[in-house]
């Protein structure tokens, strides 16, 4: 019998092995984005923007035109790229430090303008790149290298719920939160990423997919334990769901 590959490296990914730690879900999300780009046949018109953070080298792994932004400025850079070539598909790939701390103004205003770009937001409740400090999304009580006694909200404030925040902007067309912990949640995340890109193709405005992700290294958990922590602790504070889906996006489903 002839055998046929039914699952292999998407064309929109390079063959390079990522630098991410074992079990880090960045890799899953990279693959989902690449699969969506292949399925929509937009690889040759898509431009990605990498953040500062663990995904700073994302441009090495996508077989696409890519730019590397300054910390937090990916939405501004994407705005510039998209405004001068509106026929292209432009997406940012940003972590919680990049998007929800230093780049809060840029993401909020890109969303508010209805900038026709897509933001893939990786929320892993910690600063991975700099070695496990508190992120704006670090949970109350969570121990990090800069909250050694656990995040005390009286001292360090509360975690920021990005999807909920961005959903309040009038320019946002599609804002959802997903996670990538099991085949089923991964499939749901992929659908969301696909819809976000489709919304951009249909010129419906700003789209953001927040993805709860794991950081086994900085959480001090095994990859499997880390996924459990995403499901139990993170999803409790950051409920999965569709926070804004305008009617025109619904009709793309």
């Amino acid at each position: 019998m002839e055998r046929k590959a039914v699952f292999a490296n998407p064309e929109a990914l390079t063959d390079d092995l990522t630098h991410y730690c074992p079990g880090c879900t960045h890799g899953i999300v990279h693959r989902l984005i690449a699969e969506v780009i292949d399925e929509l046949e937009i690889r040759e018109i898509t431009i990605g923007i990498a953040p500062v953070g663990c995904a700073v080298l994302a441009y090495n792994y996508f077989n696409l035109d890519f730019a590397e932004a300054a910390h937090g400025r990916a939405p501004a850079m994407a705005t510039g790229l998209k405004r001068v070539q509106p026929d292209k598909v432009v997406f940012t790939y940003q972590g919680d430090g990049d998007l929800a701390a230093i780049g809060t103004a840029e993401i909020v205003h890109a969303a508010s303008r209805g900038e026709n770009i897509t933001a893939i937001f990786i929320n892993n409740a910690i600063y991975g790149m700099t070695g496990g400090q508190m992120a704006p999304t670090t949970l109350p009580g969570q121990v990090t290298t800069s909250t050694p006694f656990g995040r005390d909200v009286k001292l360090a404030g509360y975690p920021l719920r990005v999807a909920e925040l961005i959903a309040t902007t009038s320019g946002a067309a599609y804002v959802v939160r997903r996670m990538v912990t099991k085949p089923a949640t991964i499939a749901s995340a992929k659908k969301a990423i696909k819809l976000a890109f489709q919304a951009q193709r249909a010129e419906l405005g700003f789209s953001l997919v927040e993805i709860l992700s794991s950081c086994p290294t900085n959480w001090g958990l095994s990859p499997l334990e880390a996924l459990e922590w995403v499901e139990e602790s993170m999803a409790a504070y950051y409920p999965l769901g569709d926070y804004k889906v305008i009617d025109e996006v619904k009709s793309l489903r």
Partner: peptide, 18 residues
């Protein structure tokens, strides 16, 4: 393909017969 869908490193290629 479930194992491959979980893999963060695209290390698994899945084949089916026929």
């Amino acid at each position: 393909t479930l194992c491959a869908r979980m893999c963060p490193d695209v290390a698994i290629i899945v084949y089916r017969e026929g």
